[in-house]
Structures are given as structure tokens and as C-alpha cells.
Simulated assay, not measured.
Amino acid sequence: MSSPISIAILGAGIFARIAHLPAIRELGDVYQLKAIYSRSKSSATELAKTAETSLALPEASLAIYYDLGGQDGNLEALLARQDIQAVIIALPITSQPAIVVQCLEAGKHVISEKPVAPTVKDGIKLINTYESVYKPRGLVWRVAENFEAEPGLQAAGKAIAEQKIGKVCFWNYQVLNNVNTDGMWYKTPWRTVPDYQGGFLLDGGVHSAAALRTVLPSPLQQLSGLASLNREHLAPHDTIHTLIRSKDGSHGLFELSFGLPSSAGGGDSFRVVGTEGILLITKFNKPGEKEGESTQYIKVQITSAKDGSTEEIIEKTCGVKQELSSFAAHVRGQDDGLGKPLRALQDVAVIQAALNSNGSVVDLTKLIEESQ
């Protein structure tokens, strides 16, 4: 068995606590967490304490670093440590590209949270820098897009690729959310007043764009859409409606909103219609043993047009665990293709095109090419 990969977590926010730490715990000896960095001492200390409990580590065993930590306690000091091989970056969207480069320059392998960058142009610049400077040095950079890694969505994509519903004709993907001012995600300061396009539509919407490319068999090619703001606290936009055509000629409707007035009526529904059947993807929760706990599952239902028979695939959501497992394998020389920055760039292109289309047709390939 390979030795654990020694890592640090950069960013002490909600997702590091509720997603990265449980995934590291479930992966067992794959990773060895050594340090936490955050902009403030208090948030770094808090996450370190949570991590020590979650991972059954000795008290005060994790080193903490923060912006005012002095020469021996800031991010530069963390990155100078030779005993840390890789970093997980979960920082505000506009901060991440520069930090990705800083970590690569320090010789660390990097997995950074989605989106790959705030804009397509920023993403292209970052990817070109990695490909020309750091990839030749043997350094690995991956984008943490957990929807791409979800077994349920991968199973749906595999079923469609195997033509279990025949040739794809059209599809409809509806993702409806309610984000209130008292929600934990909204209370994050950099989300409350976003300095990046689309607000929650970019931050959360790239997940849905990743689901599209994971499930559908042909690359998305053209998009026409409208964006709007329906709840003032979610400025600059909270809703997009788009019509998208794929390279193979199939087309569909992508509806995404974070602006529902209540949680009633929300949720995800992804229906793909083919010449020989229909594939439907939904999500559901099962209550856990403790009060208030639940486990989410993805259900894929395939209905044959020939005889009406159905096949069901049910997978527990575990995308963060899968993406971190994939990253570790890639660091060790085994590339399964997950988390490639160029693919994550396509997700940003979908959201950016939807925000700026105003009803006009946007060529997604040209959008990326013209941003170089």
C-alpha cells in the first residue's frame, strides 16, 4: 500500500468542514492532513479543532496558518514545508486562481474547488499557465467538481452512451433552489456581496453544467438564454433559462434558479428522451440515525419505449470522496480523467453564456476560443 499523501487544506469555510473532512476520513489512509490555512486565525483554529475530532487526531496536532500569522505562520510558511505534498483549495472564487499558481510555484500538487475561475478568460489564462509551466514539472492540478464524480450521474451517462434509450432526441434539466438570507451558504460574506459574475448562478450553477456534460453524450455547442434577478438579496442574478443544442443536433432546456420564494416545489429533475426510451434522474434523501441527519441518493430510472419496462440505478451521493480519491490516484500517476481543468472551463462557459446571451445565440466553442 502506498504511503498517505500529506496535505493541507486552504480555506476554513463551510464546505471544508461538511464535505472535505468527512471525505478525507472515509478515504482512510489515502491522505494525512497536516495543516490548515485560513485568512483569519479564529477560522483556521476552529477548523483544525473540528478536523482533529473528525479524523481522530491528537489535540493541537494540526498546524494552523493565517494571513497575520507572521513569517512563520502565514501561507508562504505553509507552502515552504517540504513535508506537505498537496493542497486542497477552498477559498473565495476570485482569490483562487492566484493561490493555485502560488501553490504550484511552491511545488505542491493542487486540487481547487470549482469553478475553475471567475470567467472563461481567467480560466484560459490559468490553464495555459499550468500547461506551459507547471505540468512539465510533473505537478498535478485538478478542479474539484463533485457532480462530475457522482456515481449516479456517471451511471446515467454510461447508460445513454450504451444507447439504452437509443439516440438522444431532447432533454430537460430543471434545478430549482431557495436561498434565504438566513441560510448558511448565504451568510458567507463573499457570497453575500459577490465580486464575480452571476452570484450563486456561477458558484452553484457550474455543478449543474457539469451534470450536463457528464450525462449527455455530445458536447454542448450553442446556447440562447435569459437571466433575471427575482430576489434582491441574490444580486446580480438568481435565475437563468436556456435553450441548448449539442454537437449531435439534440437539444434541451436548462432551467436554473436560486430564487424560489420557498423551498416548496424545489429540487432537481433531469429527463433525457431518446428514440427508444426515456431516462430520468432525480434525487432523494433518507433519514439518518440521528435527528436532523439524512443521506442523499441519486436515482436513475430508464424506461423502455418498446415494452414499458423500467430499470433503476440508485447510488449514494459521494462525489467529494470520489474526486479526492481520483486526485490521489493522479498524484500517483493514474489518471482517470476526472477534474480536468479544461472540462471545468466548459461549465463556466455555459453559465457565462447564459448570463450574457440576452436571447442571442452564443457559440460555446467560440466563447472559449475567443477568450484566449
Rank of each mutant, 00 (worst) to 15 (best):
F15N: 06
L212W: 07
E293M: 10
P92V: 04
K316S: 09
Y134C: 07
T181G: 11
I127N: 00
I244G: 03
G199I: 02
T303L: 08
P92G: 07
T242Q: 11
Y37S: 05
A56G: 11
Q82D: 15
I368M: 04
E150K: 04
W190Y: 15
I111L: 07
I84F: 11
A106F: 07
Y297I: 04
Q174M: 13
L226G: 06
G266N: 04
Q296G: 13
P115L: 01
G225N: 04
Q221M: 13
A149N: 02
A328K: 00
H109E: 10
D248G: 10
L33H: 06
I124G: 00
G339K: 01
N230P: 05
H237N: 13
A155N: 01
L104M: 09
N285P: 03
Y196P: 06
F200T: 02
V362E: 01
T317Q: 07
G274Q: 00
S218L: 08
P58H: 11
Y173Q: 12
G107E: 05
P58T: 12
R81C: 13
R17K: 15
G249C: 07
Q96F: 05
A44C: 10
E162H: 09
M1F: 08
P261R: 08
R231W: 04
P136T: 05
S3T: 12
Q372R: 13
S269L: 14
R142Q: 12
A60C: 09
T282D: 12
R271F: 05
L256K: 05
P22M: 06
A56R: 12
G292N: 09
S208W: 10
V116L: 04
I111V: 12
E76Q: 15
D182K: 14
S325H: 14
A329G: 15
D195C: 11
K114V: 03
L21I: 12
A305H: 07
H233K: 09
D268C: 15
V193Q: 12
Q174Y: 10
G319Q: 02
I88S: 09
G225S: 15
I298R: 00
L33P: 02
I278N: 02
P261G: 06
P4A: 10
G205S: 09
E255W: 11
D307Y: 10
R245G: 12
P58R: 11
S294C: 07
T282P: 02
I160D: 01
L220C: 13
Q96G: 04
D363M: 08
L338Y: 01
E370R: 12
N177R: 14
D363S: 13
L202Y: 03
L139Y: 08
E369D: 12
C103V: 03
L62Y: 06
I18R: 14
V348I: 09
S371W: 01
Q85E: 15
R142G: 03
V110G: 06
K286Y: 05
D67Y: 08
V87H: 02
G308P: 01
L212I: 15
Y66I: 10
E105P: 05
I351Q: 01
A354G: 07
K135N: 09
R39H: 11
G267D: 05
G123E: 00
E76N: 14
K321C: 09
G199C: 04
A144I: 03
V350P: 00
T295D: 09
T53M: 13
L139R: 05
A86C: 10
A156T: 01
G152D: 03
E293Y: 06
F170S: 11
A305V: 02
S294K: 10
V331S: 07
Q322K: 13
S250T: 08
S208D: 14
V350F: 03
N146R: 07
L364H: 03
